[in-house]
Design a binder for these strands. Structure first.
Length: 199
DNA sequence: CTCGCGATCTGCT
DNA sequence: GCAGATCGCGAGG
C-alpha cells in the first residue's frame, strides 16, 4: 500500500487527475474500522466552467476549500441529504476538484452494509456519489481535511493502471444548469466495470 | 430575511 | 418511471 503523493494532486490539469484516479483506492478509517474501494468513476470540476460551485472564482465559506492546494477533501451536502466527496487539485489558487462518483468495495464490506442498511453486496451499495460516502462514513464534517493518515481519509496507489482504451469518457451527470458546459467530456469511468452510477 | 433550487437516491407504482 | 425527501447555499431585496 502506497499513499498517492500530495504532488499528484498539485497539477493544474484537473481533467487528467480525474482520469488518473481511476483504479486508485479510496480509504476511510473511522473509529479504527477501515473501509475502502477502487475508484471506478470520477468527474472534473474547474472554476472556469459553470458546473463548478466556484465558477468565476466565486469564493464563499462553502467553496473555500476548493481554492486550497490539491489533496484536501471538499465535501458538501447535496439535496439536503447526500454528502458528496471531492478531492481538491491544483496549486495556484484556482478552484478545482475531482468528484468521486463510484467505488468498487474492497475492505470493510460488513461495515458498509451496516451503514447503508443493506443485506447484500450489490452495485447500489457504493455506485453513486451519495451512496459511497454513506458506505465509507464520510460526511461534511470532514470537509477541508488533508487526505492522510491523521484525517482518516486518504487515497492509495492503483491496484491496476488503466489505459485510455479501458476508460469511458462522457458528459457529467446532473449538471444541466451549466448550459453549454454540461457538454464537457469530463466524466470518466472504467469500461466493463459494473460499479458505475450509470452508463 | 426570504426564496428557489440542487454535482441524488429511494420507494412506490 | 416518477415524486418526495430535506436543508444549506447564495442571490436578491
Amino acid at each position: 500500500m502506497t499513499f498517492v503523493p500530495r504532488e499528484f494532486f498539485m497539477s493544474d490539469d484537473v481533467v487528467s487527475i480525474a482520469r488518473q484516479l481511476l483504479g486508485k483506492v479510496l480509504v476511510a478509517r473511522m473509529g479504527g474500522v477501515r473501509t475502502s474501494g477502487i475508484i471506478t468513476e470520477t468527474e472534473a470540476y474547474h472554476q472556469d466552467e459553470k458546473a463548478c460551485h466556484a465558477y468565476k472564482g466565486r469564493r464563499t465559506s462553502r467553496t473555500e476549500f476548493l481554492f486550497h492546494p490539491g489533496g484536501k477533501a471538499y465535501i458538501y451536502l447535496c439535496y439536503g441529504i447526500h454528502h458528496l466527496f471531492n478531492v481538491t487539485t491544483g496549486n495556484c489558487n484556482e478552484a478545482a476538484a475531482v468528484l468521486i462518483r463510484a467505488i468498487q468495495p474492497v475492505e470493510g464490506l460488513k461495515q458498509m452494509l451496516l451503514r447503508r442498511n443493506h443485506s447484500k453486496v450489490e452495485t447500489k451499495l457504493t455506485s453513486g456519489p451519495g451512496t459511497l460516502t454513506q458506505a465509507l462514513g464520510i460526511s461534511v464534517k470532514y470537509t477541508g481535511v488533508t487526505l492522510n493518515n491523521e484525517s482518516g481519509i486518504w487515497i492509495e496507489e492503483s491496484a491496476q493502471e488503466y489505459q485510455p482504451a479501458e476508460i469511458v469518457t462522457s458528459r457529467r451527470i446532473g449538471v444541466s444548469y451549466a448550459r453549454e458546459d454540461a457538454l464537457l467530456p469530463w466524466r470518466f469511468y472504467i469500461k466493463n466495470n459494473k460499479w458505475v452510477s450509470k452508463l
